[in-house]
């Protein structure tokens, strides 16, 4: 889901950078002392999740886990994803430093959307089946939202990107399914083993 350097237009890169910076600011404001270990852990998980590859026809995709981050971190997903993406760009050459803002938006905006839409349902969930459903929805929404933002970035760059955006969406369908199952399993596991991780989330103050 990382967009490489040299693909998007300068206005899209600049706009993405500004909006991502605003999101990171809100995320840092919402972060409190107790959330730091959890945020650090999720940053590490996001960073290493890129090494888990999902075969998708001729190419391979990797887990993103932004839906899970949305449920656990809320707005703090913004600084968390920014740090992980920066390290991925520097160490693994994924994406690139100039695309950092847009890539952060692509993955963090769906995470915040998951937080706003699904966290209340997770808090109210009383059975494992409901937790699984919420987790699966979070995984699906995280990737689907990311795909929508990638397509938007391509379309805003110019008409020539329409075909690429369509191809991107099609090749990410396997990731969508794997991410839904994985996120559901993880949320269910945390709900049983460490429910306080799910109950304490960062809210904008």
């Amino acid at each position: 889901m990382h967009i490489s350097e040299g693909i998007l237009s300068t206005p899209v890169l600049a706009g993405g950078g500004v909006i991502a910076a605003a999101g990171v600011y809100v995320g840092l404001r919402s972060l409190n002392d107790e959330d730091i270990p959890k945020t650090a852990m999720m940053t590490a998980v996001f960073f290493t999740a890129s090494l888990v590859q999902v075969p998708a026809g001729p190419v391979s995709m990797h887990l993103v886990l932004n839906g899970l981050m949305g449920l656990l971190l809320g707005w703090s997903a913004f600084p968390s994803i920014l740090i992980a993406l920066t390290l991925q760009a520097v160490i693994f050459r994924y994406g690139g430093l100039t695309v950092l803002g847009v890539n952060t938006l692509i993955m963090a905006c769906p995470a915040v959307l998951v937080h706003i839409l699904l966290s209340p349902f997770l808090r109210m969930a009383q059975s494992r089946a409901r937790v699984l459903v919420v987790g699966a929805c979070a995984g699906l929404l995280g990737i689907a939202g990311g795909m929508a933002f990638v397509a938007l970035a391509f379309v805003l760059t110019g008409r020539s990107m329409y075909g690429v955006a369509g191809l991107f969406v099609v090749t990410h369908i396997p990731v969508l399914l794997v991410e839904g199952v994985f996120t559901a399993a993880m949320v269910s596991f945390l709900w049983r083993m460490k429910p306080e991780l799910i109950e304490s989330r960062s809210y904008v103050t």
Binding site: I36, T43, A44, F47, T48, A84, L87, I91, F92
Partner: peptide, 24 residues
């Protein structure tokens, strides 16, 4: 990629340790 991954994880730990220290 194991060495690179471990390096990245150490950077994450260091960054959040600094953040926790600064916030406290």
């Amino acid at each position: 990629r194991w060495k690179e991954t471990v390096m990245g994880l150490l950077v994450i730990i260091a960054l959040f340790s600094i953040l926790a220290f600064w916030m406290s």
